Computed example of a mutant assay.
Amino acid sequence: MRLADFILRDMEPILTKWEAFAATQLPASAYMGSPELREGAEQMLRAVAADLRTPQTREDQRKKSLGEGTGVIGVTESAARTHGTLRARAGFTVNQVAAEYRALRASVLRLWMDDSAPELTELDDVIRFNEAIDQALAESVTSFNSQIEQNRNLLLGMLGHDMRSPLQAIQVTSSYLAALNAGDDVSKAAGRLIRSGSRMQALLDDLTEFNRTKLGLGINVTPTDVNLADVLADELEELRAIHPERRIDLHVMGDLQGVWDSQRLQQLLGNLVVNAIKYGAQNTPVRVTVTGDATHVRIDVSNNGSAIEPAMLSRIFDPLERGRDSQNQDERAGSLGLGLYIASEIAKAHHGAIETRSDESETTFSVSLPRAES
C-alpha cells in the first residue's frame, strides 16, 4: 500500500499516537484536552498525503527538504503554521514542537511498514514523506517564533506603560523631599532618589522606543523649522551639568537651519555623547562638530581612547549590544545597550544615516541628515 493511502486509511490510529505523545510535553500539555492536543494534526496529515500524490520535480523535493517549499497549493495558511502559533500560545517550547514532528515521522513510518511491508518501488514514498514533514516543521517553527516574538513585544509594551505611573510618583516624591530642606541626610537621600529615578526613566524610554521599532512602528518624529545649532547646544548644556567631570566641546560651521524633530535629535546627540563619555579616555574631551552644507547637515561625535574591535564595530548599532570597556561600570550596569540602536533609528526616521570609524587614536560617530525645505 502506498504511504499516502495508508495515512488516509489509518488516520485515527496515527492521531491517537500524536495525541499521546503531545500529552507528555509538560507542563503546557497538562491543561489541554484532546481537541487542543490534536489541533491541526489531521489537516496536516491530509496535506502530507495530498503532497505525496502530487508529481514533483527533484528541485521541488530538494527545497522542501530544506524547509523552503511553497506548501500546499491553494492553502493560504498551512495547518503547520496554525499548529506552531497555537503551540506557542499554549506555552510549548520550540524543542517540544520539534519533538512532536520527530515522533510523528517515526510513528507513521513504523505503522506503515508493520502494516504493509512496502516494496522497493514504494520506498521513494519514505523520502517524499520526510521532505513533507521537514517542510511542515519549518513552517510550524517559523510561525511559533513569530508568535513568541509578538508576545514578547506586547509584554514589553505593557511593562513600559504600567511602570510609568509608579516611576512618576517616585520622582515627584523625591523632588518634594529635596525641596523640604530637612537636613543633609534627607537631601542626600532625595538626591539619590532623583538620580535613580532619572536613570530608570532613561531605561524605560529606551525600552519603549525599542518596542516600537520591533512592532514595526518605527521612531515617531514631528519635524519643525529649527536651528540645529541652538537645539544641540541646549542638549550639551544639560549633559555638561550631568557630567561635570568631563569636558564636552561643540564646534559649529555653516547653515544649520532646517526642518527636523528637535527633541529626537537631542535624544540622538545625547545617546552618542553619553556613549563617548562611557567608553572614551577620561582625561580627554568629547568633541561634537556640526557642519551644514547646501544639502545635508553632518554631526560628528568624537572621543579618544581604545579602538573598537572590528567584530564589535560591525554590529555596534544592533540592539542590546554593549561594549566591554566602559570606563564607568555603574553607568554600564544601568544600560540596556539600546542607545546607539535608538540613535540609528532616529537618523533613519529623518531619512539620514549614521556610521562609525575607529582606530587607536580616535572613535567618531557621524550622522548625516538631509536638509528638508522649510
Score class of each variant (00 low, 15 high):
70 T>H: 15
43 Q>R: 10
35 P>C: 12
16 T>N: 15
19 E>Q: 14
62 R>H: 09
96 Q>S: 03
80 A>Q: 01
60 D>H: 14
88 A>I: 02
27 P>N: 12
76 T>S: 14
79 A>I: 01
46 R>W: 00
73 I>L: 15
85 T>V: 15
48 V>I: 09
28 A>L: 05
92 F>C: 01
34 S>G: 08
69 G>I: 03
58 R>Q: 11
34 S>N: 12
38 R>W: 05
69 G>M: 06
32 M>F: 12
87 R>T: 04
41 A>Q: 06
43 Q>W: 04
19 E>D: 13
75 V>E: 12
17 K>D: 12
21 F>E: 06
23 A>N: 08
25 Q>C: 11
59 E>P: 04
64 K>E: 14
89 R>F: 12
71 G>A: 07
100 E>S: 04
43 Q>H: 07
24 T>M: 12
21 F>L: 08
28 A>G: 05
56 Q>E: 11
37 L>N: 06
98 A>D: 11
74 G>F: 04
51 D>M: 08
66 L>I: 05
22 A>G: 05
85 T>F: 09
30 A>T: 09
73 I>E: 15
56 Q>R: 15
97 V>Y: 02
61 Q>G: 07
49 A>H: 00
87 R>W: 08
77 E>S: 13
32 M>S: 10
87 R>P: 01
69 G>L: 03
32 M>H: 11
70 T>N: 15
19 E>A: 15
75 V>A: 08
54 T>I: 10
78 S>K: 03
87 R>N: 05
35 P>W: 11
37 L>H: 07
84 G>M: 03
55 P>N: 04
51 D>N: 13
70 T>Y: 13
19 E>R: 14
67 G>D: 05
67 G>W: 02
36 E>P: 03
95 N>M: 09
76 T>Y: 10
60 D>Q: 15
26 L>S: 13
83 H>P: 00
26 L>A: 13
26 L>G: 09
92 F>S: 01
55 P>A: 02
62 R>K: 10
97 V>T: 04
65 S>E: 06
92 F>M: 06
92 F>D: 00
27 P>D: 11
82 T>Q: 09
90 A>Y: 10
90 A>P: 01
18 W>D: 08
79 A>W: 01
69 G>P: 05
46 R>L: 07
36 E>K: 14
100 E>D: 03
98 A>M: 12
52 L>H: 01
54 T>E: 14
53 R>K: 08
75 V>H: 06
100 E>C: 04
25 Q>Y: 04
36 E>R: 15
57 T>N: 11
25 Q>I: 02
43 Q>C: 02
16 T>S: 15
60 D>F: 09
47 A>H: 01
86 L>P: 02
58 R>E: 10
101 Y>L: 01
20 A>F: 07
59 E>M: 14
95 N>Q: 12
35 P>F: 11
60 D>L: 07
85 T>A: 14
29 S>R: 02
42 E>H: 03
91 G>F: 08
92 F>K: 02
20 A>M: 11
71 G>F: 01
41 A>G: 05
16 T>K: 14
101 Y>F: 13
98 A>N: 11
16 T>P: 03
33 G>T: 13
21 F>Y: 13
79 A>D: 02
43 Q>T: 06
76 T>E: 15
64 K>P: 00
90 A>C: 04
